[in-house]
Simulated scan of single mutants.
Amino acid sequence: MTSSEPTPTGRSIVLKTRSARAEIGTVAAVLRGLAVDGVAVTEPVPADATPSMGAGIVLAPWPNRVRDGIWILDGLPQQLDITEVTRSNAIHGLLRNTDYEIRQQSAGTVTLGTLIPPQHGWPFLLDTWVRYELHADGLSVTHGVVNHSERSAPYAVGAHPYFRIGATPIEDLVLTVAAETYFETDARMNPVAEHPVEGTRYDLRAGVPLAQLDLDTPFGGVTPAAAARLTAPDGATVELAGDAGWEYLQVFTPREFPRPDGKGVAVALEPMTAPPDALNSGRGLRHLAPGQRWEGGWRIRYTPAPASTP
């Protein structure tokens, strides 16, 4: 089902199965909501406002930040538009305010696509798409790109979903992240070093209650098939997993995430194919030859609490 009425998040697309429901907006291909068996597993994004703190948006052709918006191509500096003005960075790619077209749709799937044209600091022409496919226990998201430039183009992608498990307070959830390293960042949230998580407060491999965490932290060495998990006190879980190559994850736990009933704690788990400032470091970048195509993705899976035994 698609609504043609324009909103700040674009046209609204509703996907349904017997047990699951997802809502997508065409602006930034935003994931506006996902519920399984009536349980909300992502934070809902209102249709009538720009997504708060990047909630649910697609991040391409790079996720996270580019320091000062400057990177080097063939020895020449490229100046991207500064989109994080307070920190003087270019953040989350070039599609945050782009309205995608609907290229394919069925009851349980939709493919949205758009061009990334040449622009300030980005002399390439890419066609990109994202396919949402609803399942009985969650959602799979596949990102794709083809390079229509006459030269090789760098590319990375990510997404910015915020998670929850129904009405369970976020602070009561336990977060597990299968990451071997974390990135130390400066005051502008740009990476300055990468460290092992072993023996640090960033070691989330055994699970840590969100009440004890205050993070806006990139992680590396992520095991894609078991990237992250949230566990409720009753044993219900939401799991995030990716394809090979999705080896980076940003964990963000803002304390002032806006909701209809007031501001509170939220948790974003942002799957990424490259770390922050990848256009400069080269880490995780794919270099697409003219005409080259790539696809890859990530998944959300909800498992309800185990049935109690009498």
Results as ranks from 00 to 15, higher is better:
W298M: 06
L59K: 03
G54P: 11
Y248H: 14
G282E: 14
F252G: 03
E171M: 10
D37N: 14
F219D: 09
V197A: 06
I82N: 03
D127Y: 09
P306I: 10
T273E: 05
S281R: 09
R293S: 04
L240H: 00
E270Y: 00
A232P: 04
R283E: 15
A307Q: 14
G199C: 09
E184R: 02
P161I: 11
G297L: 04
G245C: 01
A244H: 02
G75F: 13
A107F: 07
A206C: 05
G297W: 01
V177I: 13
S52T: 04
G242K: 00
P61S: 06
G38K: 07
V130S: 15
E84I: 03
W298Y: 09
V36S: 05
L95F: 00
S281Y: 09
T200L: 04
A244S: 01
L215F: 02
V157C: 10
G245R: 05
V177E: 07
H92G: 04
T142G: 00
Y132S: 07
A90D: 10
V157E: 07
E198I: 10
A167R: 13
F252V: 10
R21Q: 12
R164I: 05
I170W: 06
R201Y: 01
P6D: 09
L210M: 08
D74C: 03
V14I: 12
N147W: 13
L230E: 05
G282R: 07
R151W: 08
S152A: 15
A305G: 03
I91F: 04
G291S: 11
Y155D: 07
I70P: 02
L288K: 13
N64D: 15
L288H: 02
V146P: 08
G69I: 08
N89S: 09
G108I: 01
G296A: 09
G38E: 13
V192M: 08
D137T: 10
R188W: 07
A228F: 04
P44C: 02
G25L: 14
S12V: 13
P61Y: 15
A22K: 06
P290N: 06
P77L: 11
V265F: 15
V222I: 14
L285G: 14
T253L: 08
I165R: 01
D37I: 08
A228Y: 10
L249Q: 01
R21F: 07
D186V: 06
E194A: 01
Q79W: 06
F219V: 02
G291C: 02
F219A: 01
A47I: 07
G221D: 11
I170C: 11
S52K: 08
Q78K: 04
V66G: 04
P224S: 12
Q79Y: 10
A307K: 11
T217W: 07
P191W: 14
P63Y: 11
S3P: 05
I91T: 01
A179M: 11
P61W: 12
R87M: 11
L34H: 01
T86R: 11
A241F: 00
D99Q: 00
P117M: 03
L173F: 05
Y132F: 15
G38C: 12
